[in-house]
Design a protein around this nucleic acid. Structure first.
Lengths: 253, 253
DNA sequence: ATAAATATTTGGTATTACAAAACATACCAT
DNA sequence: ATGGTATGTTTTGTAATACCAAATATTTAT
């Protein structure tokens, strides 16, 4: 994420306030003022401005995110032109596998989950549509990193701060680059409990002829149910089939 | 929508820019500057600030909405606590009827579609999740208006500017209030081609014991397929069943 | 009823958002 | 290649305003 040369401070403050509302699920003027270190008066003016535009609502003393943002989200999503195509395939993937199938895209060096479909036995996870995470510790993330243009990959890795989320998380650049090489050879990326203990997954990117990455598809499930045979043969086959169907249709867009 | 006493102008300008990006599906600095009447330099600073926070992305010369807003949308939606309950019922409603079934809530005097489920014969409409429209010309809108507290209803009607969207649209307050009275008696609201020519629908609000309105459910379809028998008997029955199931479960929240 | 806690408004000032212009960069056509 | 055009970006001075602190209004609790 590039830093703005001449940021508009007032706007940044409003966005900070929105962050607080998102993370708290609603807060009072005083609470927000305390959290972001601004005066109550300032917070009030910002909230009033945001409310006037539907980005915020308040009932009584509690301010929350307004539903205006749902409208925005729809329009943001609508620029992913393979969306309808992919959701169909992700649905069948979830049904076939019985697990949780996801569609994720990259933006600003992060992975953003755009669609999820739960099979009959799907794990309950915190991953929701809009969920954002670092690329280095997920199957889809590593899959996209592996196949994206080198400069882009370098730029993203450059800005990555490795963190040992679980004992299995990759925590240094060399190890990551080694794994990416393996992924390029195999054509599939795995998550061996690198994000959440007990959770494994496999994923592969969606590309066109030019190598442009449109996103990635993954299947995730509990380690106990996803033995090496299932995780490394059955599931990758299903994913590749789904990816191929989408890729074939990209040309016609 | 209340007007802010001391709006933060800079924030309003950013939101204006976001509006343009939404409506155009992406635009260049020069285009935005022209549309909103600010200098290119100013637009640039705002875009850079928004981009730094993931609300905007640019590729080449074109700026678009960033996927950050999808995350926001999820959190905004998550405060609708009957959401999961309702979507299930709306799905069965769509399946049973074969038409398009919707879940809409009111915020700031507007109706916001939060979920839609398409039956086998569902009409293709511009209504999307996040879609916002005035209450006075939709089934769900009138249904919610009819049953909400009088002061709130008065406030919303007060601020309504009636517009003849179709020949059937209600265009004055007296007629609207008369219809709302009928809706209160019947317990169901109709849309007789008042929003879109050829499109009819029926809807009813979801309430708890206190009379608090949680939203409304509707079924819409082409007039040719929805004769008076189907529209006024079959469909309302289905809607009422769905509404009742949700209402029963509200108490347990 | 009173007090306590909160939201909102006000007013003055230091900050900064803004427009205009200069600069840089990408894209054409010749 | 080369100049020209259209674009995005940065700079700069200044007029506008976002900000804080204090005052007021409002709600809630005792």
């Amino acid at each position: 994420m590039v830093e703005a040369k001449n940021p508009v401070q007032a706007v940044q403050r409003s966005l900070e306030i929105i962050d607080v509302l998102q993370n708290t699920g609603g807060a009072r003027v005083t609470d927000i003022a305390e959290q972001v270190g601004m005066s109550k008066g300032t917070i009030h003016c910002h909230l009033a401005t945001l409310e006037e535009n539907g980005y915020v609502v308040h009932d009584g003393t509690k301010y929350k995110l307004g539903l205006r943002v749902i409208d925005l989200a729809h329009h943001a999503k609508s620029r992913i032109d393979i969306y309808d195509l992919v959701t169909k395939e992700v649905d069948t993937l979830a049904e076939e596998s019985g697990e949780l199938a996801l569609f994720t895209v990259e933006e600003g060096g992060e992975g953003i989950c755009l669609y999820k479909s739960a099979g009959d036995n799907a794990v309950k996870t915190e991953v929701y549509v809009g969920y954002r995470n670092e690329l280095y510790h997920t199957a889809v993330g590593k899959g996209m990193l592996a196949f994206m243009p080198a400069e882009q990959r370098d730029r993203i890795i450059e800005e990555t701060t490795f963190e040992a989320i679980t004992p299995n998380t990759i925590t240094d650049e060399a190890a990551l680059r080694e794994e990416l090489e393996a992924i390029r050879e195999e054509g599939i990326a795995y998550n061996h409990e690198e994000s959440i203990h007990g959770l494994v997954g496999a994923g592969a990117p969606i590309r066109d002829q030019d190598g442009t990455i449109y996103g990635a598809i993954s299947v995730i499930g509990p380690a106990r149910r996803m033995g090496s045979d299932r995780l490394e043969n059955e599931v990758p086959d299903m994913i590749h089939r789904a990816v191929n169907i989408v890729e074939i249709n990209i040309t016609s867009l």
